[in-house]
């Protein structure tokens, strides 16, 4: 994975497979604390302790079908966070959901770029119309001022009624709304 936004998409796919109805994504940059924090929370079917431990092992996968024998998504993300003086944590409760928290030292030389957060959110939202995705971005500067952006598919779907998200004008609207909102937080997008 080249950047954090791709890891994010990968983790979102895990939540989808866990039959989540809602996924909350909270990305926070706290410059005074030199911290970049990514939280991904879902209300999927969760994991017991044993599965939770195993999920962080590269040679584990929950998939039983086909020939797939490894699951690298979580271990790779974990390694990337820990390499940047950060931390990585997954908490899960069976039939309640899962919370994944990854922290990075914001100015660490090895920290991956955030990447195109807007593309990750757009593809996840369009790719899983049945799921509601809630995004919250906060960027607090060194002088203590904070820039926010919130986005939720719940409100969008309410406005659209029975019109699908894949309707051409809606795709353009969502793309522009996300790009604009993220730009306003002055988070990097590249």
């Amino acid at each position: 994975m080249q950047d954090i936004s791709l890891h994010l998409l990968d983790i979102i796919e895990n939540s989808v497979r866990a039959k989540a109805r809602n996924i909350w994504i909270i990305i926070t940059i706290l410059e005074p604390e030199n911290l970049l924090r990514i939280i991904i929370k879902d209300d999927g079917f969760g994991m017991d302790n044993e599965t939770l431990q195993a999920a962080q092992d590269p040679f584990y996968t929950s998939k039983t079908e086909r020939l797939k024998k490894v699951g690298l998504g979580i271990p790779l993300f974990k390694e990337n966070a820990e390499r940047c003086a950060g931390s990585f944590k997954i908490e899960s409760v069976v039939s309640k959901g899962t919370v994944l928290t990854a922290e990075f030292a914001y100015d660490h030389i090895d920290r991956m770029p955030l990447g195109m957060i807007s593309d990750t959110i757009l593809t996840a939202v369009l790719g899983h119309e049945q799921i509601d995705l809630h995004l919250k971005l906060q960027h607090c500067k060194i002088d203590g001022s904070c820039l926010d952006f919130k986005f939720s598919t719940e409100l969008v779907k309410k406005e659209l009624g029975d019109i699908p998200l894949s309707y051409p004008d809606v795709i353009t609207f969502l793309d522009e709304m996300l790009k604009e909102g993220i730009k306003n937080t002055e988070m990097e997008e590249n």
Binding site: L160, D169, V170, F173, M177
Partner: peptide, 13 residues
């Protein structure tokens, strides 16, 4: 971008 715009798109769709 505002949600108002979505209402117009909905009517068109």
């Amino acid at each position: 971008k505002t949600l108002e715009e979505l209402r117009k798109i909905r009517e068109k769709a």
